[in-house]
Every structure is written in C-alpha cells, then in structure tokens.
Computed example of a mutant assay.
Amino acid sequence: MNIDQVVGGTCVAGVPASAFAMPPGMRMRYDPPHASLSDYLTGYAIYAAESRAPMVNWYLPAPAMISVLVDAGPVSVAIGNHRFGPLDRVSLYGPTSRAFQTVTHGGIAVGIGVSALGWSRLTSRLAGDFRNKIVPLDTVVGGVVARRLTEGLDALSDDAMIKPLLDSIFEPLFLRRHPHEDLIRAFTTLAVTDGVIEMHDVAERLGIETHALRRLATRHFGMLPKMLLRRARFLRSFIKLIQPDGRIDYSAIDSSYFDASHFLRDASTFLGTTPRRFLASETVFLKASLRARAAVIGTPTQALHVAPSPVVIRPGRGSPGFQDELPG
C-alpha cells in the first residue's frame, strides 16, 4: 500500500465525511475493531501525509498502542526528556502519562489502541515496565506478529482493507483469558467516571485492598491508580473545555477540581505546558483525531475508552488468590 491508496473515512455507516477533514496532502481513517475484539482493541487509526518534509505533531497521554509504518520516512518520538527513534516499522508505545511529540517524514502510520484488558491477554509482561517508553513490538510478542503486520499492510491496495486485515491478525492473540478480567474491566470504567478520583474510593467500590489495586493498575494499566485517575480526569476536562473558536472555557472542567488553578497544575503534569499553549502548538493530526474518533467510536481519545458491557463486581476483601497473586 502506498500513500495514493489511502482515501480516508471509515467503514461505519452514517459518519459524515466532514469528520475526516484534513489539510491538503493529509488524510485520516478511523475504524472500530471487530466486535469480538472490542474488549481488547480500542480502535484503528490511519494517518497519511504526502509531503516528505519533517512534520511535528503532539499527542495526548494514552494507554498502550501498536504503531505500524507503511511507505513512511523515519519517525522519532519525544516523551518528556526521553527520545526514541528512528522507530522500527512496528513499535509498541507503552502507556503514557504525558503528552508526546512525534517528528514524521510522510507516508502512512497505522495505530492500534490496546486496552488494559487487551494487555492482560496479549502478554504477561508488566505494563508498568513500558510506561513512557517505545520498544519494537517483536521484543514483547515475538517477530511473527510484526511480520504479518508489515507484509499484510504492504500488500494492500485500498485503505478500506486495513480493518479486516488487522481483525484477522489480532483475533488469535486474545484467546487466553486472564483470571482478573472483571476487576480490570470494572477499574477501566471507574477510571473514566466523572468525579471519581480517590484511590481508596475505587478500592472500596471494587472490594479490594489499596495495595492490590496498585498491583492491578501497574500490571495492566501501566501506572499507579492515582496517576490513572488524574490522567482521565484531566483529559475529560481538557477535551470538554476546547471550544470551536479556540476559546478555553474553564466552566467545563471536572467537578472534582477545586478551581482553574488546580486544573492548570494537572495541565503542567500531563501536557508540560498550559492548555492554551499546547493547542497553539503543532496538533493538526491530534485535533483531527479527536473529531474523527468521537464520530466513529464514540469517545474522542483512547484514554477515555471503555470496553463494552462493563461489569462492576465486589469480590470482597481478601478474595482467594487476588491479593497475593499480582506481583508488585
């Protein structure tokens, strides 16, 4: 597949073409995974740019993601003070706790979002070991998957064929059920619930001790519960306060923020700057992605995605095996 074969859009009926509007020479596509994968993969994003000149883009903190480069120039990424690149053709982005900057040189990038539930079935590695890091995918799941992705995408002639290809490659990878899936799903739901910010409250709702919640979060979500809850609260607020005319409306921030200055402290943590300055930087693909993802999948960003049919359970403190099974 080459850049000329990417048209953009989605397989979902009824989504207007305006949801994928991009500047000249750039195109975007968003597709949901097959229903059998919707617990484990949060969506398929395809970005394409004709120009081979360096292009800078900023993206919001997010859960884990797999990125595949097709007919693309070198890509480098900065997460805080850490630099990664040139990236392998197939890379795993670990969960991120701050915005990150990419420098691309045209071509096609295919992003596959991985939920915490997906992580639990994909690998036994601790997600926390990959926080704010990018590694070749084959170091985590072996080289066969990476080869199937590159060879399969290279052979396509139409971007509408990307979704069925990815579905077929990933479906066999999520067959192994994790024993704590109900807890992972329930915490996923609580983490994106307006007003939920206290770790003790979450542990109480889940019916587990706080130390067990910390282990669960680090293993499958990639960071401590408090950071996850703060990240979700900030992103809910940040996305809601963005106005079409560029204004920042602080009345839309989450109810658990004391005031705008409290919110701005979180902005410094997760963006490294103020919301106004961040939005004024190079965010062409980010802004288009927020719009397209909301139209296709229902939530504007992967970090606020909830797996279908969440089940909130109360296994009771000291449930057999759970408190001691997860490593610290």
Rank of each mutant, 00 (worst) to 15 (best):
residue 2 N to S: 06
residue 15 V to R: 05
residue 24 P to M: 03
residue 28 M to S: 09
residue 36 S to D: 15
residue 36 S to C: 11
residue 38 S to T: 08
residue 41 L to E: 00
residue 46 I to S: 02
residue 48 A to W: 02
residue 51 S to W: 05
residue 65 M to W: 14
residue 71 D to E: 08
residue 73 G to P: 04
residue 80 G to Y: 02
residue 83 R to N: 07
residue 89 R to K: 14
residue 97 S to D: 07
residue 101 Q to R: 15
residue 102 T to S: 12
residue 104 T to R: 14
residue 106 G to Q: 13
residue 112 I to Q: 10
residue 112 I to S: 10
residue 113 G to V: 13
residue 120 S to K: 12
residue 129 D to I: 07
residue 131 R to A: 13
residue 131 R to P: 01
residue 134 I to K: 10
residue 136 P to L: 07
residue 139 T to L: 11
residue 141 V to W: 06
residue 144 V to W: 07
residue 146 A to Q: 09
residue 152 G to E: 06
residue 154 D to Q: 07
residue 157 S to G: 11
residue 157 S to N: 09
residue 157 S to K: 12
residue 159 D to N: 05
residue 161 M to I: 09
residue 161 M to R: 14
residue 162 I to N: 01
residue 162 I to G: 02
residue 167 D to V: 07
residue 174 F to L: 11
residue 186 A to G: 15
residue 189 T to L: 14
residue 192 V to E: 07
residue 198 E to K: 03
residue 199 M to V: 12
residue 199 M to Y: 01
residue 202 V to H: 02
residue 209 E to Q: 03
residue 213 L to D: 00
residue 216 L to V: 02
residue 221 F to Q: 01
residue 226 K to Y: 05
residue 228 L to F: 01
residue 243 Q to N: 14
residue 243 Q to D: 14
residue 245 D to S: 15
residue 250 Y to C: 05
residue 262 H to A: 14
residue 264 L to H: 12
residue 265 R to I: 15
residue 266 D to Y: 13
residue 269 T to P: 09
residue 270 F to T: 11
residue 271 L to I: 06
residue 273 T to K: 02
residue 274 T to A: 09
residue 277 R to W: 10
residue 283 T to R: 11
residue 283 T to W: 10
residue 290 L to K: 05
residue 295 A to W: 01
residue 303 A to S: 09
residue 306 V to P: 03
residue 312 V to K: 05
residue 313 I to E: 08
residue 316 G to M: 03
residue 317 R to E: 00
residue 323 Q to A: 03
residue 326 L to W: 04
residue 326 L to H: 05
residue 327 P to K: 13
